[in-house]
Design a protein around this nucleic acid. Sequence first.
DNA 1: AAAAAAG
Length: 747
Amino acid sequence: MPKNKKPRGGRPSANFEPRYGAKKTSFHDRHNGGPARDGARDERGGRADAGDRRTAPAAGGYDRRPGSRSAGHRGYRPAEAESGAPKQRWGASERAGRDEARGIRNRAESGRREAPHHRNDERSERPRFNDRPTAGGRFGDRPRRDDRGGQRPTGPGTYRDERGGDRPRFERDGRARRDDRGAGTQRQGFRDNDHRDGGRPGRDDRRGAERPRFGNDRGAERARFDRDERPRRDDRAGDRTRSNDRGAARPERSFDADRARRAFDRDRTQRSYEGGRDERSRPSTGGAYRTERPRPLTSDTRGRPARNERPSRNDWNATSRPASTGAKFAPGDDVVHERLEAKSVAAVEVDGVTFGDLGLGSNIVETLVGMGAATPFPIQAASIPAVLAGRDVLARGRTGSGKTIAFGAPLVERVLQSQAGKRREFGRSPRAIILAPTRELALQIDRTIQPIARSVGLFTTQIYGGVPQGRQVGALKKGVDIVIGTPGRVEDLINQGKLDLSDCRIAVLDEADHMCELGFVEPVQRILRHTADGSQKLLFSATLDREVAALVDEFLVDPAVYEVAGEDQDSSTIEHRVLVIEHRDKADILTSLVDRDGKTLVFARTRAYADMLAEQFDDAGIPAVSLHGDLNQAKRTRNLERLTSGRVNVLVATDVAARGIHVDDIDLVVQADAPDEYKTYLHRSGRTGRAGRSGRVVTLITRQRQRRMTELLDRAEIDAPFENARLDDDVIEEIAGRVPTAADLTA
DNA sequence: AAAAAAG
């Protein structure tokens, strides 16, 4: 029996479409006097809408009234009077889409009429995107980047003046070339030759012959190097501070600063092997961040069996020092991790810097404050000015370090600038797109960015799969400024001609390294190719590595690379433990672990196992739900919401929930199956310890797996004790929090 | 193995 499309009782969908649940007033209700059934007004409505792009396209199709038009027949309904139950099936979302879009339009229009409150004046003075010729031939025959002309916006004004002095510093190692060029053509300059690197040092080697494999065997050396270099966690155990996060509860600045300071020190020690090359004099720039000397990030490909091999997180900066050490990264054999060389900047938080100082307009700043982000986190302080300046940016910030705002806020600012003085036209195509690997993440990003965008009169919409596209298309028809979505549906709509990215000047990839994995890159690449020529690209992730090279090569021009010094696991608030167990005890131990008070997130490797575990917990009297790709979107959303709202305390998920998902108070992450990749470990464990809270991560493994696990943790730079455990061992009680830990007692 | 499109 084909499940009714209508959600049971119509209620569950409330979670899913909260914004549209309310009563709907149709356009025609308001303008044609009195409610008219969708179908009934077919004739008139159809005509009225004919030239009106505001109407959802799909409307016509099923709007057509069923049944007869003459009174004597079954199914006939009088045109005006009747408000009887319409066919809800498609209607609900469709209408919702229309209504929302209508709202968007109305607001936009009224905003236009009555001098937009949000437009802040000084801002309209700023440079804006040049008008570009409309779409003409953007697909397929779109010129290669070489042809892209100086359409690039010049950087913004104000902060740039103040900060302009800092900027060139990034480019010290031969990159200062940039300064020779007119600011307005900064990007053009880089692409006017074969592969935009002409004589730029540091680029040559990486470009080399379309992929020379260089420095092959040095990888091993490097990896070891890095590991040894890493300071022991114990050294610092005592003064670990709580990590910070974007969430509601923003940690005090003081501690942030403290952390940053220590981070720097640590950083220094870490890199001390670099000797003279790394004097770290760190002259103050007087700005929000200080620029480290440029660090060419060079890596290359070489074969190594270890799939997890990574260039070490200390990393980009510390380890990529080909010039001095000759060492090269040694990424996995099977993955072509190209060099991702670029100068890198370590951001340091400086007291007193505000979002406003970074170049954001007052409305945005206020909104941020309202969201609990009073002052910028390091990653934000570093990347915001660069984004505003129109640069391509690669940024790595630990899980929960505020990446969404780091790209979202300046993105909004920039879109706003690009539209300053223009009216937001009806049906305009989006100016920016943000891509995320999962639907939940796309939703979450929208939740953060939408208020920021709205505060300046811009509109966002989500474009992701698993839900009817009508509403999304409807919103696009009205015109949105910022699209947030997942690759599949985005590409789908592009191909359907319903999403036009030709005017999209900023593209963001969240979880960029993940988006660059096999199977993900291709659609992403295709999507990016649809964006405006020379569009600005921002790549963010907690584990950004050379995996993004494929994209960087094709799409980024002289990217600024940022990471926050000292932002490693050692300074985090997460406690990691590994339980070595007998396989036969696994189920019971898991049940025992999740039988607790706080919120627990359990990761399983497969969907089936996730389901199984959720059921198992449920059967044991512990309410649990699952989250994985086998569930329909409504269930996914609902189940996640159940955890968020606290209706259940246990969520069993596949890696769909590993990245980005923010639930405030998960205090225990259980890995029922150990991850295969260190990055996965980092992302999974990053679901806890957010917002400065403490968190605990426990991984169950069998004895046979110990070695692999050791290696993985090593790469993740995490120190975790391995403990043998049986079903009723105290460790389990302790981890579950049913008995105080030794640490708790001493504390 | 998982994720990402299917009115």
